[in-house]
Simulated assay, not measured.
Amino acid sequence: MGQLLSHPLTEKYLEYNDYKHVSQDQTSNITSADGNLVPHFYNCVGSMQGYRLTQEDAHLVLNEDKAIHVKFYDPFKNKMEQLKLSIFSLFDGHGGADCSNFLSGGHQHSAKKGIARWIAYSFERHQYGAYLDNDSDSLRPPNSKRAFRTLQGLITQVIKDAFMLQDQELYQHFANSSCGSTAVVAIIINNEFLYVANCGDSRCILSSKNLGIKTMSYDHKPQHIGELLRINDNGGTVSLGRVGGVLALSRAFSDFQFKRGVNYGKNKGHHQNAGIPPQEAQVTAEPDVLMHKIDFTKDEFLVLGCDGIWDIYSNKQLVQFIKYHLTLGVNLPGIITKLLDHGIAQANSNTGVGFDNMTAILVVLNNGGESLQDWYTKMKVRLERERGLQ
């Protein structure tokens, strides 16, 4: 009997990060009951080209041994702090894979290239201050260019700065190209605070105990009223749900044909109407940023996916799909594989659903000292109780 080979359409790239190779001095220094070191945030990435002629998705995972460590000035405490940034991000390119690959830092997933470089740069070199109290407009330090009343607001602006700096760098490479990319970036600071920055229609959701699902991003579509107003104010139009009848997104990196009036510093002379803030362009790279303090007693996992995933699954359906297979004892690579296979099986030539590239990242929110096997066991018991099976 001959061997059954996988169909080319369903060939998948899987990256399973269980961190068994990480040495003791590279982890979070959290030990389990038996004294072994246990990493945070096990994860698995799955990607499928599907019916598309090319694969335009890219991703970036920087965690544990690859996590970014930055020196961050906290104006509320008036001191420097060391922050650990675990980054999980997904980039859905269009017009080619050049832009999405650039954002991911290339195949080496480098922290010194792409969006990771600018995130670290913005955290370390921000010039923001804090209001000393509610009755004072004094800034700390005195030369701060802007003040914030909360640390969360300051960090949100720092992340937005990173996106705008990245877009400025992209202009140097793709000013005359029609390529672009969405981005959804989940940043976990010191294993405690989750910030999700989204630009485009890739998405991130958080699954919690008792069927809880928290939307950590919002899709940026041209027909949404806030997006439509910005596009029209900048002289653009929306037809057939697309900017200029072409682009089905209202926010993205690159796509500089929709950013003609933006001032890119030394390159501003290339534009006839230099000086438009990048946030006001028809298509902007400015992200929405949402923050969540992780509660390891309730929060279970994160899912990041490109729009090809969300064409198939609703937020609720995807979480139910993952939890169902956790109940059956399927591991992370198995779940991601089934998720992608089920997605392409739904391909419909009439609607176009299921014909896009598909990429998903599943991130485990395991507590300090909780091994991956411990998390599997906890989830299986919890889900069986929720289903009334115990």
Rank of each mutant, 00 (worst) to 15 (best):
D201S: 08
V330W: 05
Q223Y: 14
I309W: 04
V70W: 02
S28E: 13
F88A: 09
L332P: 00
G369W: 00
H224K: 12
K298C: 09
D307I: 05
K259V: 05
V363C: 01
K221N: 02
G275A: 14
L60P: 00
Q257I: 10
S110M: 07
G241Y: 04
W310S: 05
P278Y: 09
A285F: 03
Q24I: 08
Q282Y: 08
L339I: 12
P141G: 02
L229E: 12
E286V: 07
M216D: 10
H292M: 04
R203F: 11
S254T: 01
I309V: 15
E81R: 12
M164H: 10
A116R: 03
F76S: 08
V184D: 13
Y218C: 12
K145I: 15
S254A: 15
E15G: 06
Q82K: 15
H109C: 10
D98W: 06
G93I: 05
V184K: 02
N17K: 06
T327E: 15
T337G: 11
H40R: 14
P8N: 09
S32A: 15
H107F: 12
G2V: 10
N134G: 15
D295F: 06
G308F: 01
S177G: 04
Y128W: 08
Y376E: 10
A111G: 15
T215P: 00
G368F: 06
T10S: 14
G261P: 04
V330R: 02
V363H: 00
D65L: 03
H325Q: 12
T10G: 14
Y264S: 08
N210V: 04
V246N: 05
A274H: 08
S254Y: 03
F301A: 04
L5Y: 10
H271R: 14
G269N: 13
N29V: 03
R385H: 09
H94I: 12
R242D: 00
L372N: 10
D233R: 11
L240T: 02
